[in-house]
Write a protein that binds this DNA or RNA. Structure first.
Lengths: 215, 215
DNA sequence: TCATAATTTTACCACCTGGTTAAACCATGC
DNA sequence: GCATGGTTTAACCAGGTGGTAAAATTATGA
């Protein structure tokens, strides 16, 4: 059982690169091998199958990006502080790993059930439980009259949407609005404060949630 | 050259279904043929190659969902009316075609350049031009003092993000937060008014865009 | 009715893909 | 040196993939 050998690290680096770009179905074992500077048989020597190699990469991503998020959500900070922290956190995470959102989405769509156990597991630090905590905090802040009445679940989705979406549609932005790489970086950088401001203004507003449409 | 024959329609229905679910790379010609109740050779008889069949489906999606959006953006309505209209429009579109966003994202990532010409073409009704018009309208409304100072591009991304994102992460919602199909429909239905209210409160708020983070 | 063209099927091919086998290579200890 | 065990490679295989050829079937019109 090899552990942390130079070869294994090179394989994981290559696999991460290829899987992130192409997803499970689109990735080719030969391409990963070539990217790692070895041949395909050796790849199977270290990781028995494509599936096992993929799971290494997916779990690694999961373990890398979740703990910090859980720390933020579970802290004693105020709602405003949390909203600002989450925005900064996503900004840093996605600037360093731009392909992460699409990778997760693709994986979840290609193989929904295999990942369900991981996401749904009822252990401490479980994301669902953390989201539940944040929802309670939102509910309390609303009852105290700090913010207008709203559905906590709705707010959480909005927070994540505003922070993650630009990275998901980055290719659209670059082709449709002619946004170059440096433009995107400037844009994303500006949003790391503009987004929490936008959210905080929204939840302080006076329009109740259930207002019917006027068009 | 066959046109609109019953077989061709069955093929397009089948291709739409399979391509939407699995993307270009994941789709199998045999599966499309079986779904259409014919065999693979006939598929190639109607559409010479997988690539051509795929482009039919992609262009069809593009032509179906864009004109109405352009009509909304190009109308004489006020900014508030447009924001409400866009939210309703996305809600209807994505409720009827839940797989559309992921299909577009996947396609754009798999084959970015082939679709660039379509998105970037400088013809009237070109999306980039419509977005430009909306950006000018936002800028004017801000100058009139109706809303706080903000970056128009930022607002457009926020509008789209809040409307589209829930449909993109629907699989996450169902597994992580235990949201059943009927729950999601209720949730999305509520958002079609909650989202424009959220946005309008946000842009009426008093926090300037450039406030530095406080955490 | 029957020739002609359009439609549909059967059988097939070349190529790619994940995975395996067996042999070769190489470090280590004696 | 050389035996041993972990590491790496070349060669290969079975199954699946997009695509094609040619025969069979069905519609069309004179």
């Amino acid at each position: 059982m090899p552990h942390d050998s130079a070869t294994e690290i090179r394989i994981l680096d290559a696999a991460r690169k290829v899987f992130y770009q192409k997803g499970f179905g689109g990735a080719r074992m030969d391409e990963i091998a070539q990217e790692a500077g070895i041949n395909k048989a050796l790849l199977h020597y270290y990781f028995r199958s494509k599936q096992q190699l993929f799971e290494h990469i997916f779990n690694e991503a999961y373990d890398r990006f979740l703990p910090e998020m859980i720390r933020v959500l579970g802290s004693e900070a105020s709602l405003e502080e949390k909203i600002r922290s989450i925005s900064l956190y996503y900004h840093n995470l996605l600037t360093e790993n731009p392909l992460l959102p699409i990778f997760v989405l693709k994986s979840l769509q290609e193989n929904p059930d295999a990942l369900a156990l991981r996401l749904g597991a009822d252990r401490p630090g479980n994301p669902a439980r953390m989201v539940g905590m944040l929802m309670r905090q939102i509910g309390e802040a609303v009852e105290e009259g700090k913010y207008k009445a709203m559905d906590p679940q709705n707010l959480i989705i909005n927070i994540i949407a505003l922070n993650v979406f630009p990275f998901i549609i980055r290719p659209v932005l670059s082709r449709m609005m002619g946004m170059k790489d440096e433009d995107f970086i400037t844009f994303a950088d500006m949003r790391k404060t503009a987004v929490p401001n936008f959210i905080l203004d929204a939840i302080k507003g006076d329009t109740p949630d259930a207002l019917p449409p006027q068009v």
